[in-house]
Write a protein that binds this DNA or RNA. Structure first.
Length: 258
DNA sequence: ATGCCGTGGAAACCACGA
């Protein structure tokens, strides 16, 4: 079973690229972030014609997450993170597929930091960590997947010294990520590739992709025991080089079917 | 050190992203 995540940066503007990538790689489950489309403007027909069922949580202009499934039935558990009633940003969607809880997330960017946006990022992170603990307590397989907007370590960025004051790499952010992971989660990419330079995002500016000036900010966190089913993982780097690409590349993992 | 590009929505510019 192949599961992928892709921050599309606009699901409608990205539709040709998204459909080509789905056709070429045929993941079984897909988590999308940054739909940038209201609920009624999600391209349901095109996704359906491509062979995928979809559940999505849209929002006008910003954010938005979706989960697609090619064959397996998919049941929604919930949308939005508990813990802050006034939070109306569409950044979290939770479904059950094949006995696995899939949590598709788009963690706030948090810049400029410090400031209210960074405070929101840290609050959101705390809520995610609480939800993650709740899910772990059920002892069912869970995957936290998506755009975390976190550079976990110096090995996950082309030039760490340039990012130390950035909301993606500040100590508070890395500590929050470490606190979450230490609940017992496995960072799938790092589990298989402990030391390699692996990036999932390259800025549109300054020829970043050609220079390989990238960041690793899209992650799969696997609940205990699920790591034993992890057989492969990678980044579809070439997609970042396609015409009209997102600034993120798709990331994928392959799990042993149970 | 930097929003230089890209997207969406509204309005012919601006907010926002990382």
């Amino acid at each position: 079973m192949k599961i992928a995540t892709y921050n599309v940066n606009g699901v409608n503007g990205r539709l040709p690229v998204l459909l080509r990538w789905l056709e070429e790689t045929k993941p079984d489950i897909v988590c999308l972030q940054e739909l940038k489309a209201p609920q009624e403007k999600f391209p349901e027909k095109a996704i359906s014609d491509a062979g995928y069922k979809a559940i999505w949580h849209g929002q006008k202009s910003w954010n938005g997450v979706a989960i697609l499934s090619r064959e397996a039935e998919m049941e929604e558990i919930g949308r939005g993170l508990p813990g802050e009633d006034e939070d109306i940003q569409s950044r979290y969607l939770e479904v059950m597929i094949n006995g696995i809880v899939i949590c598709c997330l788009y963690l706030p960017n948090g810049n400029p930091a410090p400031g209210p946006k960074f405070d929101y990022k840290l609050r959101w992170f705390q809520r995610l960590t609480e939800r993650a603990a709740t899910l772990l307590a059920f002892n069912t397989p869970v995957i936290l997947v998506g755009d975390f907007n976190v550079i976990p370590t110096e090995n996950d960025v082309y030039k760490p010294e340039r990012w130390v004051k950035d909301a993606l790499f500040r100590p508070e952010t890395r500590e929050a990520y470490e606190a979450l992971v230490s609940q017992g989660w496995t960072d799938a990419i790092r589990h298989l590739y402990p030391t390699e330079k692996i990036y999932t995002f390259w800025d549109y500016f300054r020829n970043a992709y050609a220079r390989d000036a990238g960041l690793r900010i899209d992650h799969f966190l696997l609940s205990p025991k699920l790591d034993k089913r992890l057989i492969a993982a990678g980044v579809n780097r070439d997609v970042r080089g396609w015409e009209k690409s997102s600034d993120h590349a798709p990331v994928w993992i392959e799990l042993l079917d149970k």
